[in-house]
């Protein structure tokens, strides 16, 4: 038997052309639900800290783990290195992909659609608010976010955000690709010394439909060893 690579094709296009996790997170970061704690600057990734990253990509039952390192002391183009891919030396292709993915510039700031605010939950020290973004403030590349709803979970005792999440409310069209599912969430930790949020874990679940077949992928990124 031999099958032609529709799946491989889907993966090739899928993960890299569609995954726009930064868009969601950084667009969220532009919003001020509460003036102090929700300031976008508090949630941008620290560029002056070095850290490790573990990326786990699971696609239709096949898993791949890439370990990377961000070195804040190096010139910008050399900051990302790939340490290993499934315990082996990374290939040229894997290194290029990783660097491209992590070196991506965030999208320009977008605005919250003020009429879309909802308090989803407000009890036992946890406040969850949700909102959507104003389509007029999005650029063509992230226009699909208009169909996603963002959720922020805030620990009311500390006044800090613990989780930022985004869920699509209907099937998305990203570039020309049909994306029935695009859910992302980020866990954050508060760094008291820097007075700023550090990323802890990003989780992106996505299903793309391409050439008649659906392919589901989950990408988990875990951050650790922050050092100045």
């Amino acid at each position: 038997m031999k099958r032609i690579l529709t799946l491989a094709l889907a993966l090739f296009i899928g993960q890299h052309a569609v995954a726009q996790k930064e868009a969601v997170v950084s667009a969220l970061a532009k919003y001020k639900l509460d003036e102090g704690i929700l300031d976008e600057k508090l949630r941008t990734k620290p560029t002056d800290y070095s850290y490790d990253i573990k990326e786990t990509v699971a696609t239709e039952g096949v898993e791949k783990i890439i370990l990377g390192h961000y070195d804040a002391s190096k010139p910008e183009e050399d900051r990302w290195t790939v340490i290993s891919s499934d315990d082996q030396d990374p290939t040229t292709t894997e290194i290029k992909r990783f660097k491209k993915e992590h070196g991506k510039a965030p999208y320009p700031p977008a605005k919250i659609d003020e009429s879309s605010y909802k308090v989803e939950k407000d009890d036992a020290g946890i406040l969850v608010v949700s909102f959507k973004l104003d389509p007029a403030s999005l650029v063509p590349d992230n226009a699909f976010i208009k169909d996603c709803r963002s959720y922020l979970t805030i620990d009311t005792n500390t006044g800090k955000i613990t989780k930022a999440e985004s869920v699509n409310e209907k099937p998305l069209k990203v570039k020309t690709f049909n994306v029935p599912v695009l859910n992302t969430y980020s866990e954050l930790t508060w760094n008291e010394a820097e007075k700023k949020y550090f990323p802890k874990k990003d989780n992106i679940s996505m299903t793309i439909k391409l050439l008649g077949q659906e392919v589901a992928t989950t990408t988990i990124m875990e951050y650790s060893n922050f050092k100045k």
Partner: peptide
């Protein structure tokens, strides 16, 4: 690259 619409992981098509 296998598809002329995608190079360097950038898709050069839109709707």
């Amino acid at each position: 690259e296998p598809i002329v619409f995608v190079t360097q992981d950038v898709a050069y098509i839109k709707t």
